[in-house]
């Protein structure tokens, strides 16, 4: 299992927080209400563990959005991954209602509200990726958002691939709007190469800051 030092861990948390800051100001421009976004916890886990964490914290049925991302590093191969923003199925309607500011009388998301949820994810994922891209000094391209509805397992493709061959960066995002909070989960799915590249990038960044990376990993 690839481990991160505490310092590397902090850098990732901070990067995500900066991304959420940008996403929040972008959302504030879109909706009339003040939106607050915070990333309280970050962990690096396997796919199986991510499924468990999502199931425990959210619910087995989740909905949200995913975007593919890719970057071309000079030293190594191309890096690919998939980024998700997921909500417990029952909360996704609440997020849209909070942001659209009207009460939707229907019990399920209609196509148009699904699109709105997809855009919220789009904004957050793009902001996260651009924050990582600033950290790494490296462009990260993102694809178009794709709506995701299903069980944790099916969305994270836990049955399709060898779950030990990649890593998942799992973080919890809390949305605050008019004193109400809804929890969402940002999940970045990366292969071993991408994770190594991320770690190398973080080390470069720390060197540039002249902070000795005390860990041995």
């Amino acid at each position: 299992m690839l481990m991160l030092t505490e310092l590397q861990h902090d850098v990732i948390s901070e990067t995500l927080n900066i991304g959420m800051g940008h996403a929040a100001s972008a959302l504030n421009e879109l909706v009339a209400e003040e939106v607050g976004l915070a990333v309280p916890r970050v962990s690096i886990v396997t796919r199986e563990e991510a499924v468990e964490m999502l199931r425990d914290r959210a619910s087995d049925q989740v909905s949200g959005v995913s975007q593919d991302f890719s970057a071309e590093f000079e030293q190594s191969d191309a890096v690919n991954g998939q980024a998700f923003l997921l909500f417990p199925r029952s909360d996704s309607l609440r997020v849209v209602n909070m942001l659209l500011g009207d009460s939707v009388p229907l019990e399920a998301l209609t196509e148009m509200e699904q699109e709105a949820l997809s855009e919220i994810g789009n904004i957050i994922i793009n902001a996260t990726m651009s924050s990582f891209s600033d950290l790494l000094g490296q462009e990260i391209n993102t694809g178009l958002p794709v709506t995701q509805i299903g069980t944790c397992r099916s969305i994270l493709h836990a049955d399709d691939v060898d779950s030990d061959s990649d890593y998942i960066l799992f973080s919890h995002v809390s949305f605050n709007l008019e004193q109400r909070a809804v929890n969402g989960y940002v999940v970045l799915l990366m292969d071993v190469q991408s994770m190594s590249a991320l770690k190398a990038g973080i080390n470069c960044y720390l060197e540039r800051l002249n902070v000795p990376n005390s860990g041995t990993y």
Partner: peptide, 17 residues
């Protein structure tokens, strides 16, 4: 701007735009 400078793709929903 994000697309030109950062290579990010976006889809603007009707509900919010």
């Amino acid at each position: 701007d994000d697309a030109i400078r950062r290579g990010a793709s976006s889809k603007l929903s009707h509900a919010l735009n």
